[in-house]
Design a protein around this nucleic acid. Structure first.
Lengths: 307, 307
DNA sequence: TCTATTGATGCCCTGGAGGTATTACCGATG
DNA sequence: CATCGGTAATACCTCCAGGGCATCAATAGA
């Protein structure tokens, strides 16, 4: 089979139409080039050049080979570049699972920054519940999940990229609505909108635990899986709720958010991925998500200090 | 730059996912392959394979390289084949000039046979006068001309591919129309349709010469450049003419053709081309045109014998 | 713990690509 | 017409990168 070297030599001679100059351009001596061309001609059985003593001319076969060689050499160069970029994670495809609540801030900012830095990595986005992401990771349906801590199968690695505080959400007309913060105990007799234990075990357990620490068990009047549904129900006046602070970004009117004076443990947003499917793009995505998470937390801290 | 060998090695390992088997397939030893792959990875800075002790897996960069390598290797193989074919004249493009009279038999049959044998040579056809072909050859506008003997510039080679007899054409109602042949002297008082000396010097001179040998000078009542126009005028009853025998194939009714008893020298059809632009396709075309010409002459001879 | 498998490493060898010197060929030039 | 200049081809030698063989290292499985 033809070698790349041979294509480059043919190209040089065909373009210079002069063995000496072509050899100089290739940084080899003229006899070596002459021999290589001869060998190619022998190998293909086709005369590529007509060497009359005073000039070199292309034959039809030579012209064909020049044209095609150029194209192959271009492709090869492109391939090498692309492999290099793929190795650095600048090229490829990343399928990202994410929970709905991350669409309010964390996800869009991460995506924007990632696209700026790695414009040639195709991103595919899939909104999925925490549980669905766990199984999707196991089946390689997604490369990475933007999700919450949970029990993952072995081989799944997680990285906490941000912790967010819980806040209390009350209807705008509620007596507490104008306060900046409240002890949890003040809510002991309020009707609660809670997360169902089955589908949102993390939120459910965290909230029950903090209420119990405050000395009461919240009375559920309704449950809802997604944070934004819960906030919607609060806005409709059905009751109060404890939600992660990102809920503030959801643009639901008629709801006031209050800091919890007991400072209960925050809830994490994590990235989850399969260790064996680590790719450079994934590493890059992790790094970016982490810094974005840190920025969000810094913003949270500033807000807290201002009050 | 990447070498073809490297692409083939990557492809083999990527497809086998096993260094030992891949090496066997490449007819080299496993250590050599391991080293080559390492070198490629170092050269591109991208990990192509993940070697866990029990199995080999592709990375994203490796998958990319596999796919693109396949395509480049295919192209390269195709290139080598095509160059080989171009060298044998089975591929390329041939621009052919031809005189109008060759369209009745010689040209179509040559083209048909050439296309059968060399289906991948593109043929471009240009009807041109003898003089135009001479200049077109000098300017490389055509690769070969199907024409008549003439004075060509130096560097133009010609090959006679067939000789055709002259015959006499008379209107169907003419007294001679039912004869198979005639001596030229019988035409001494007929009105003649002749070829103009300026644009058809060969026919003009040949006809004048044979008439003079028969003892008379033909009386021109009209001149016309193309054979089929001349025959048309004969059919219209304007006079008689001396034309090459191919005129019989022109499907003009109301004309009778007679052999000339003096057997004057025939006229040639020649191929003309520029020596320096000799290509394999051109050689192939010459060979085919020559055999077709011989077949036509054999057919002429048979016809002559039958009478 | 031992064995089998498989990729990596060390060391040597060789073919072929490349270099230098030279030749062969031809056109130009006085 | 002899000579010179330019150019591709040839002869011969060198050297190195790709390849082979032997072996190691790491891990899974019995």
């Amino acid at each position: 089979m033809l070698e790349i070297r041979q294509l480059r030599y043919v190209q040089a001679v065909a373009e210079e139409l002069h063995f000496g100059r072509a050899a100089a351009r290739l940084h080899i001596a003229q006899p070596a080039l002459s021999r290589q061309i001869q060998q190619i001609e022998q190998q293909t059985g086709a005369a590529l050049f007509v060497r009359t003593q005073r000039k070199v001319e292309l034959t039809a076969a030579g012209a064909l080979m020049l044209e095609r060689s150029r194209s192959i050499l271009r492709e090869l160069e492109q391939l090498e570049q692309d492999v290099r970029r793929a190795g650095k994670g600048e090229l490829g495809r990343l399928t990202i699972g994410f929970i709905h609540s991350s669409t309010y801030g964390l996800l869009p900012r991460t995506l924007q920054r990632f696209r700026d830095l790695y414009p040639d990595v195709e991103l595919e986005l899939r909104e999925m519940s925490i549980a669905d992401q766990a199984t999707a990771l196991g089946r390689d349906h997604i490369d990475v999940g933007l999700t919450r801590p949970a029990r993952y199968a072995p081989g799944i690695e997680t990285l906490s990229i941000m912790e967010e505080d819980f806040v209390v959400a009350v209807p705008a007309y509620h007596a507490l609505a104008s306060s900046a913060s409240t002890p949890l105990a003040r809510l002991s007799n309020e009707p609660f909108i809670l997360f169902p234990r089955a589908s949102s075990p993390l939120f459910n357990a965290s909230i029950l635990r903090m209420c119990e620490a405050a000395g009461f068990t919240p009375q559920a009047i309704q449950t809802a899986t997604q944070v934004h549904t819960v906030v919607g129900l609060v806005s409709a006046g059905m009751g109060v709720a404890i939600v992660p602070v990102t809920a503030k970004n959801m643009q639901v009117s008629g709801v006031a958010f209050l800091r919890i004076q007991e400072d209960p443990p925050p809830v994490s947003v994590v990235l989850a991925w399969r260790t064996s499917r680590e790719t450079p793009s994934l590493r890059a995505f992790r790094a970016i998500a982490l810094t974005v998470g840190e920025e969000f937390m810094a913003a949270q801290a500033r807000t807290r200090l201002r009050r």
